[in-house]
Simulated assay, not measured.
Amino acid sequence: MKLSPRLNAINQLVTQPYTHIWDCCCDHGFLGAHLLLQGMAETVHFVDSVSSICQQLENKLTRFSPPTQNNTSPHWQVHCADVASLKLAQSARQLVIIAGVGGELSIKLLTGLLEHNAQLDFDIIVCPVHEQFQLRQFLITRNLKLISEQIIEDNQRYYELLYLSRHAKQALTSTGEMWNLRLDAHQRYLDKTIQHYQQRSRSRPHPALSAYLKIQQNPGIA
């Protein structure tokens, strides 16, 4: 199945194979399946907390597991589990993907994941549905650095796609450095974000509002 623009953008980020890739909150497993068939991991793990989703996905993967691009049999596992309590493999080369859920839930899942795997080094791709500012602040407190970041427009919705590692060189910021206001999509997303925080600032100023207004007022820095 063809991936949505959001999932395709995540798929294109993975250019080097991992030992393990964990597709968390995997829903129908479209992203993990593409990574599996491209041979981007020795094992792709599909993780969801809904048992019916996990059972359906396991049935599909069992029926349809053709050779990968490297002509090897794909390896996969389905886990019906809470991502926050997930124990990763004892491997140095692994990637965790959390996409399609809100920023607050992403923070909850990553809090548990980082605590339960504190001794492991793993990369993270996160693409929240909303509350990006709060998620970025959380990630900064966990000393995660930026491999890359981008804005994705998909079905008239906007997403921030963050590729992270503790050993990357670029510092993560609360609003991001990926803005290009010459692009209509970026300008629309910024306008929508400012309107959101203006509404939230009616009773009490929200710190995100002034941060995003600076981007609008100083387009040369974007």
Rank of each mutant, 00 (worst) to 15 (best):
A168I: 02
Q198I: 00
E104W: 06
G176N: 12
Q12I: 00
M1N: 09
S73D: 05
H186T: 07
L144Y: 08
K214G: 00
A33T: 11
R157Y: 05
D154G: 11
A168L: 04
W179S: 01
S106Y: 05
Y163A: 08
L135F: 10
S51G: 00
W179C: 05
D27G: 10
I97V: 13
Y189M: 15
H45C: 05
D123P: 00
Q38K: 15
R93D: 13
R6E: 06
D184S: 13
E160N: 13
S52Q: 12
N155H: 13
I221C: 02
Q137S: 06
D82Q: 10
S106F: 04
L61M: 09
D191C: 07
L105C: 03
Q198L: 13
V96R: 07
V96T: 04
L135R: 10
L183Q: 15
I147S: 05
A92F: 03
W76R: 06
Q199C: 04
P66W: 08
E58I: 00
Q195R: 15
I194F: 14
H206L: 04
S73W: 07
P128E: 03
D123N: 12
P128D: 11
T141G: 02
G112C: 07
Q77A: 14
T141I: 04
D184R: 14
Q199V: 00
I147H: 13
V126N: 03
Q69H: 11
W179N: 03
A33M: 12
P5C: 07
F122S: 07
W179P: 00
P219F: 12
Q90N: 15
Q137T: 04
T62Y: 10
T43W: 03
R93M: 04
D48C: 05
D82Y: 06
S65A: 15
D121W: 01
L35D: 10
A84D: 02
F138N: 08
Q69I: 15
D184Y: 10
L114I: 15
C80T: 11
Q134P: 00
C80E: 09
L161Y: 10
K108C: 04
Q119C: 03
K2A: 13
R157G: 05
P205C: 05
W76P: 01
G100E: 06
T193K: 14
T72I: 13
